[in-house]
Design a protein around this nucleic acid. Structure first.
Length: 759
DNA sequence: ATGTGCACTTAGCATTCATCTA
DNA sequence: TAGATGAATGCTAAGTGCACAT
């Protein structure tokens, strides 16, 4: 039965890339591989792909399941080539402090119902004047927003939803940590109350302000450095050496990472050493001139022992730490925004350390310096209780800008970018934005056909820039590529998106296997994750690409007449609020919806339905190229699971035998007792069958998920209302799909989506 | 058109927590 | 009950896109 069930399942859908563990196992054994020896691998890949048949039939997902993070050596070439373009680094501290918020153009805020005007005069002003509604005359995409705007049906509605909410909470408490919840602080209670606030049933402000009142306690700073005890030794060139605190601190950053691959990389070591020397006394500086002569082993052992000791702590000690953390959370982890207590996302300032850039980052290993109160800009209401800086210190600035959402900010010293302290995803301010994002994507749904027709027309344009724009847009739409902003060279890893693709990132095959006009993409995208895909395109696209490639070097831009701002300007004209990234959201969500429709079968058991959901989710993750390193223990845990399955199977056949025996017994005796025995056995068989099926489903799911990360798409690209509707339709408890954090983030969707919701 | 600063979203990896197993 | 394991959470880097200046 189970085997049949599984084969059926695999028949159902076609989004499967075949997991060829044999071929790929070796490569993935350790993740170190990912950054090494890439060039060779690239060649091998090409070869492999030329010769291996593609088993994946899904058009969009026609890509290798072997996508690796890596380092691209061709970037070197590229950097050389463009060196002349290199601009002066803007590393210098920009301490420009604009005290007052610049008057900005009003932000899109599309959900206000003209019928429900609030009394507050400040809101009246903006109410009808959402720029989005004034600007364009083409409104065909707009209506949706009005359908979904928060409805003001207070009383009635409230009762209903309150009841619903209660149901959720009860389930919550039964399934999760009831007991623990109780003995944790009182503060929890008011938090619980806050969770019930349904901001999505309220009107939105339309004047571009993000809040009216904001009060918080400021950030939590990293604990000060504690010098090492004397027993911890550091040797330079074999000789014992005691470092002064500043240099010692930086040395410990390195010592803690000794086991990490980073510390073997030249760039990392070079950057670290350079910055480390800046922290040394002149005496230290003159002695320590070669990183290779430094012996951090003693420090490294010390930290290992420390973390071991932490693990071995008694229950009481652990409990105390937990309570301390909880206290800090209660004090600093929340703020008051417009009459509601809201959770802050990251209220701790990033501690000092060594910069860990991803991929081939030119700045890896640089010292991330300690942030002091003097570096922090506080943002809060004028009439709020301002946060106090730690005794003896001052804030850099306190401002009152309600056009932004952050509570505190500082400038980071590696890239010179600004870091922010903002609210948790469950907050109103994040939730509204998220909801709005999906509404924009739904508007795109309404006009996507028109836009697609248009770019197909544009492939024929006599203007090069229009053709390039149209082809790029086609990629963004079809392959869900990122926009690809330009980046400053030498400041970050060499990665690209659609508009910044270079000639070296694609290969054209007029004919490949039995397909025509195949484009092969091979480049490093965000986070230096490799995007590898081969895909047949329409002839016209192919011819255009050939045209774009004419007379170009590998390091030249593929779309030399295009950048993201040109593209987005064009998109803005096609639909209000449309940008390149909306396509990713749209295609992700629509794919989920379609896949769910195709894969779900109401006769399936709950685990089977959830497998279907995960597969739909997976299709999206593949589309968006969301990868992960295969877990270190993957093979082992698969084996364990297989062992379990084997055992279950044995159990099952044993149970079946017993059932047979019982039946025979019953046939012979026809008494009540034997009848009962048959029933008991039958039940046992059934139970074991179910367990076995569950295990097998689990195994399938896990195997398919080896290199694919579902979380990112679930959290950022899939309209949660699709999932909620699906759960309601198929009677799946929402907890099976969203964990606690996710349910908090998507509370708005869980509350408002009914089973007939259509993206 | 181009450059730059800023605000905010999206991303994968590291660490911690909870649960299961021996 | 310790230790292993997988899930959840935390952390912060790396994107996108817009406003504004030149």
């Amino acid at each position: 039965v189970c085997v049949d069930f599984l084969t059926d399942l695999s028949k159902i859908q076609m989004l499967f890339f075949v997991v060829d563990t044999h071929k790929h196992k070796e490569k993935h054994k350790d993740k170190e591989y990912r950054h090494k020896d890439y060039k060779k691998d690239k060649e091998r890949d090409k070869f492999k792909h030329n010769n291996s048949e593609h088993k994946d039939h899904s058009e969009k997902k026609n890509r290798d399941n072997e996508r690796l993070k890596h380092t691209d050596s061709s970037s070197e070439k590229h950097r050389e080539k463009h060196k002349d373009k290199d601009k002066e680094r803007r590393r210098e501290e920009k301490v420009k402090s604009s005290l007052i918020a610049k008057p900005k153009k009003e932000k899109e805020n599309g959900y206000v119902s003209p019928a429900a005007i609030k009394n507050e005069p400040e809101e009246d002003n903006g109410l009808y004047s959402s720029p989005q509604h004034n600007k364009t005359s083409r409104r065909e995409c707009d209506d949706e927003e009005f359908d979904c705007k928060p409805k003001k049906v207070k009383t009635e509605h409230d009762k209903k939803s309150k009841k619903r909410k209660h149901e959720y909470e009860e389930e919550d408490e039964e399934e999760e940590v009831v007991n623990k919840d109780k003995n944790v602080t009182e503060g929890k209670k008011s938090k619980k109350d806050e969770e019930k606030w349904k901001w999505w049933e309220e009107e939105r402000s339309t004047d571009g302000s993000k809040w009216r009142f904001l009060e918080h306690k400021g950030p939590v700073f990293a604990p000060p450095y504690e010098p090492l005890p004397d027993k911890v030794k550091f040797y330079y060139d074999g000789k014992l050496m005691k470092l002064a605190a500043p240099a010692e601190e930086v040395a410990t950053f390195f010592a803690k990472m000794l086991d990490h691959e980073y510390t073997t990389k030249d760039v990392f070591r070079k950057n670290f050493f350079k910055d480390w020397r800046k922290e040394m006394t002149s005496e230290e500086k003159s002695k320590i001139t070669d990183l290779n002569k430094c012996n951090f082993a003693g420090m490294n052992e010390y930290f290992k022992a420390q973390s071991e000791a932490r693990k071995q702590m008694s229950k009481e000690e652990k409990q105390k730490i937990k309570e301390d953390n909880e206290r800090i959370l209660q004090e600093y982890g929340f703020c008051i925004m417009d009459n509601h207590k809201e959770r802050i996302g990251n209220f701790r300032i990033e501690p000092p350390g060594l910069f860990r850039g991803r991929g081939d980052h030119p700045k890896m290993g640089m010292l991330k310096r300690r942030i002091r109160p003097e570096d922090i800009i506080i943002n809060c209401s004028k009439d709020s209780k301002h946060p106090k800086p730690p005794p003896g210190t001052k804030w850099k600035e306190v401002r009152h800008d309600n056009k932004v959402t952050w509570l505190a900010s500082w400038t980071e010293n590696i890239q010179g970018s600004i870091k922010y302290i903002m609210l948790n995803p469950s907050s109103r301010i994040k939730g509204e934005k998220d909801w709005q994002k999906y509404e924009t994507a739904r508007r795109l749904k309404k006009c996507v056909d028109r836009i697609r027709n248009q770019y197909r027309e544009d492939w024929k344009s006599k203007e090069m820039r229009i053709r390039q724009r149209a082809v790029a847009l086609y990629f963004i739409d079809k392959l869900a590529l990122r926009a690809g902003n330009e980046k400053e060279e030498g400041e970050t890893a060499d990665t690209v998106g659609c508009c910044s693709l270079r000639v070296e990132h694609i290969n054209l095959y007029p004919k490949l296997d039995d397909q025509e006009y195949v484009v092969e993409f091979d480049f490093l995208g965000k986070d230096s994750i490799r995007y590898y895909n081969r895909i047949p395109v329409e002839k016209r696209v192919f011819k255009n690409l050939q045209l774009f490639l004419e007379n170009k070097q590998p390091g030249d831009d593929l779309f030399d007449r295009l950048n993201t701002s040109i593209l987005n300007k064009h998109l803005q004209e096609l639909m209000d609020g449309l940008t390149a990234k909306v396509f990713r959201t749209y295609n992700a969500s629509i794919t989920l919806q379609q896949q769910l429709k195709e894969l779900s079968c109401s006769d399936d058991s709950v685990p089977a339905k959830i497998l279907s959901y995960n597969r739909a989710n997976r299709a999206v993750a593949i589309l968006c190229n969301h990868q992960r390193a295969p877990p270190k223990t993957f093979e082992k845990s698969m084996q364990n699971l297989q062992t379990k399955i084997d055992e279950k199977q044995k159990q099952l056949s044993a149970a079946r035998k017993q059932l047979k025996a019982a039946k025979a017994e019953h046939k012979a005796s026809h008494d009540d007792k034997s009848k009962k025995a048959v029933e008991v056995k039958r039940k046992a068989v059934q139970r074991i069958e179910e367990q076995l099926m569950k295990l097998q489903v689990q195994a399938t799911d896990r195997e398919e998920n080896k290199q694919i990360a579902l979380g990112t798409s679930k959290l950022n690209y899939l309209d949660p209302r699709i999932s909620v509707a699906w759960c309601k339709k198929f009677g799946i408890p929402i907890e099976k799909i969203y964990n606690k954090t996710q349910r908090e983030k998507f509370a708005w969707a869980i509350d408002m989506a009914e089973k007939d919701f259509e993206f």
